[in-house]
Amino acid sequence: MLPQTFLPFKGLKNKFNALDSEAHIVQQLKNKQFTRAVSAVVESYHELLYWHIRKLVKHHEHANDTLQNTYVRIFKGLPNFGFKSSVKTWCYRIAYNESMRFLQQQQKLHYNDSNDDTNAYFAHLTADPYFDFDSVSHALHESLAKLSEKQQQVFQMKYYDELTFEEISEITSWNVNSIKTAFYAAKEKITLFVTANV
């Protein structure tokens, strides 16, 4: 690990910390210490995975349940981890798939609730007691509601989760070029909408 004096920038320090925790988890996996590895995953990626899921499922309670299911899958899958991607990306992928599974179940339960996508988006958000509408930029949420599902997901993963296009591609199994297109289209729409409405 690098001495703290060599890490003057916060972003750089975070990157080194992330690499450090990744190396630690990989070491535990190679030693076949799976319980320790999953503890290290929880320690390192708990907050990241929660916010990744929260942005997809929106409600806090749903995010909490989905996160628990994600950990169960991570724990059961760790002994078979193939080292083809980083542990972080692999965990994000499981969290993404688990969120998609949850959303599909929800769609089956609430089929045809509303024909208006924007109304449905806000109705869903405001139903959560842990959502504070007053403090939020209305324009940002309105512009997000107007994006396609893919554009929303790509924008949030890139902008809030700070994932690379390659990582998003590994998580979602979408083509890198289509992700780039979706991101730049989303960015343009949001910028236009926010500028016009602020």
Partner: peptide
């Protein structure tokens, strides 16, 4: 996430849920 998206969590959620998840696992 709080400021831009308005997403909040119960107080001390992350510390508490970390412990709960580890206990559950």
């Amino acid at each position: 996430h709080n400021e831009q998206l308005g997403y909040h969590t119960p107080e001390g959620y992350f510390d508490q849920s970390k412990k709960e998840m580890l206990r559950f696992l």
